[in-house]
Design a protein around this nucleic acid. Structure first.
Lengths: 224, 224
DNA sequence: CGATAAGTGGAGAGCCCCATCCACTTGGCC
DNA sequence: GGCCAAGTGGATGGGGCTCTCCACTTATCG
């Protein structure tokens, strides 16, 4: 390993200990209170001064990035597992379930992930790999005929954002909600009974604004 | 009409004009910037002082409530329309589509609605009526055999929260995303191909936390 | 065992937010 | 036209947040 084994390399022993404690505490607090827990609270729980915290992580965003770096890696490895599965559809479902569970269990990761996914922060390389891996997984799953052909690449982001939306209240409730939502969506992603879908791209807003859900419904019928 | 025609009754002419302008401006700002637009910004856009704003609406929450009161009423009437539809399943789908469109088009309403739905603010009466109406609609839709029997009452909240999650970026993109999500979910709500679902209730968290998506998957297979 | 650079803590600057107070203005009735 | 309650605006308080500054402490090495 020619590169540093850790970002905390070259630190004095006590400093390194403090840094580790900060990250650990931040992970916990972000997980069950979300990303908007104050820096002061993190410092207090880690039993260090605020200055120490800011010396290691010049900005809150840098702390968030550090804290969730391994989660992003975990996501990539989840994808690798899924790609290794001989049954692409099962791999597809499993990958989605795992990632959504990760979101449900960690409030902070949930929002950080969704925020970082479209316009990544600086982990762009990991992100691109994940996106491409998922594209491949999608392709294979479609090839088996189990995943509906009109499943769009962007539907992953759609699912992740939707999943993020149901992460509220207690962790138990969030997990249960996420489980159920994912089950519904995976069932909708299956090829059988695939009715017509609206396009994944944007559409013209004015049409809708001018008839805001109070008309007598000229919309197409989603039934059968 | 024995009751006041409006909450702004008995106000001096100029005051009433100001009040109306405040509500109008707040509606617009909330719609496309979300609920966290500052009170000062609303006052500025309405060309009144902050004191005037606070005289009419002692707290920000009261302003939000006033601004979205008619939207909540619109939701109730959407439900009434749905109940009047001779085809309960079509009514069910239409109601969900309409409400989700309302959310997608109005950022502020989207969050206000989700926030107010479980632990309502003060519009509890409307809310209860809506909940009961939806329960009836659900019952009828199930009776036709089109809506899956294990659809839970809480799945509506699940859908609304999920829909709220995809409301990001531009209004056009939000609407497109919402459309697609709702189409997917409605398709999953159909009775055919209804695979097993996780329970709508909460579950024990420890099991999951102890095997956080890195195990070799002992979970049940959602495929066929 | 000291010298020294690395590390530390807490006060506080700067900013944004909700909400209040009070001296001033103005619409509406006689 | 004049009176006065109703209405108004801007300064201000109070709180929370991110991030900075600086005098003090401590690990580490010859």
């Amino acid at each position: 390993m020619p590169t540093v084994p850790d970002a905390a390399a070259g630190l004095r022993a006590d400093a390194r200990q403090n840094r580790d404690r900060i990250v650990e505490v931040a992970r916990e607090l972000f997980a069950d209170r979300g990303l908007d827990v104050p820096m002061a609270a993190i410092a207090r729980h880690a039993q260090v001064g605020i200055a120490t915290l800011y010396r290691r992580f010049p900005t809150k965003e840098s702390l968030v990035t550090e804290v969730f770096a391994d989660r992003f890696e975990a996501c990539v490895s989840v994808l690798d597992d899924a790609l290794a599965d001989p049954d692409p559809w099962r791999g597809f479902c499993t990958a989605i379930e795992k990632v959504c569970t990760m979101q449900a269990v960690d409030r902070g990761f949930s929002t950080a992930f969704v925020a970082a996914f479209p316009g990544a922060v600086d982990i762009e390389q990991e992100r691109d790999r994940a996106v491409q891996g998922f594209a491949e997984l999608t392709r294979r799953a479609k090839a088996t005929g189990r995943l509906r052909a009109d499943f769009a690449q962007d539907d992953l982001a759609l699912l992740l954002k939707a999943n993020c939306g149901v992460i509220t209240e207690s962790a138990e409730a969030a997990l249960a909600a996420s489980r159920r939502l994912v089950a519904y969506l995976l069932s909708a992603f299956r090829a059988e009974q695939a009715g017509p879908l609206p396009p994944p791209a944007a559409l013209d807003l004015h049409d809708v604004l001018n008839s805001p859900a109070s008309t007598t419904r000229p919309a197409p019928d989603p039934a059968t």
